[in-house]
């Protein structure tokens, strides 16, 4: 065994032969390393499941309705919703998974649409703020508590609040604040949003 010097992680000798790594490196989220060249690659029959980089027709189910769009793999769900389907309730604000303005539900899971490719969402149910009825309690709550000013972050906050309150009836103020920490408002409407969410969780969140 290695000694317990305070040099933490071994720089070598992990039992793995290091190999030149990346141009770019392993990407996020369970990543694999990236090679600099085609070395070691064996030409395989292209998998049927591989979508080439060219634009292709896909079908997205948004708010219960199927939509056909032609997009490249690299197009995010956010851009597809906004540019191709004109669902502009989800906003493009930070584009870096920080602000929550693009929040949608995918198969019921609350998600930043900027972190999803459109092709990833084929076969899934996408729910946007446009699905909410005019008398939706979350929308009504935002209006009642004046939880908006310029309104640009608001639809994303509405979706996050809806997802949180549906899942957490009876939540405390601390839990509300913890749950909604993935959204940013610049105008400073947090007090109204918190009051709105508290009222919704107290009612049971529906």
């Amino acid at each position: 065994m290695r000694d317990l010097r305070d040099e933490s992680i071994p720089q070598n000798g992990s039992g793995f032969n290091r190999r030149d790594f990346l141009r770019g490196s392993g990407a996020a989220v369970a990543v694999t390393a990236l090679a600099t060249s085609e070395q070691g690659a064996v030409a395989q029959d292209a998998k049927k499941s591989v979508r080439t980089a060219e634009p292709q027709d896909i079908t997205l189910n948004v708010n219960g309705k199927d939509h056909k769009v032609k997009v490249e793999n690299r197009v995010t769900l956010l851009d597809t919703l906004r540019d191709d389907l004109n669902h502009t309730g989800c906003k493009d604000v930070c584009d870096t998974t920080n602000c929550g303005a693009c929040t949608v539900l995918i198969d019921g899971k609350v998600t930043y649409a900027c972190t999803r490719l459109a092709v990833e969402c084929v076969g899934k149910k996408i729910t946007t703020v446009e699905s909410l009825a005019a008398n939706d309690p979350v929308i009504a709550g935002f209006v009642k508590h004046d939880a908006m000013q310029c309104g640009f972050c608001t639809p994303g906050f509405v979706m996050a609040t809806k997802a949180f309150c549906d899942k957490n009836p009876g939540a405390t103020l601390d839990q509300v604040r913890k749950g909604l920490g993935g959204n940013i408002c610049r105008c400073g409407t947090y007090a109204g949003i918190a009051a709105c969410a508290m009222e919704l969780v107290t009612k049971g969140g529906k």
């Binding site: 703020v129 005019a134 939706d136 309104g151 509405v158």
Partner: peptide, 19 residues
């Protein structure tokens, strides 16, 4: 706020939403 529901529901169209 009279246009609160438009903003909260995403119906309000901003310049960025012009399409």
């Amino acid at each position: 706020r009279m246009d609160g529901a438009e903003k909260a529901s995403g119906a309000a169209k901003y310049t960025a939403d012009t399409n």
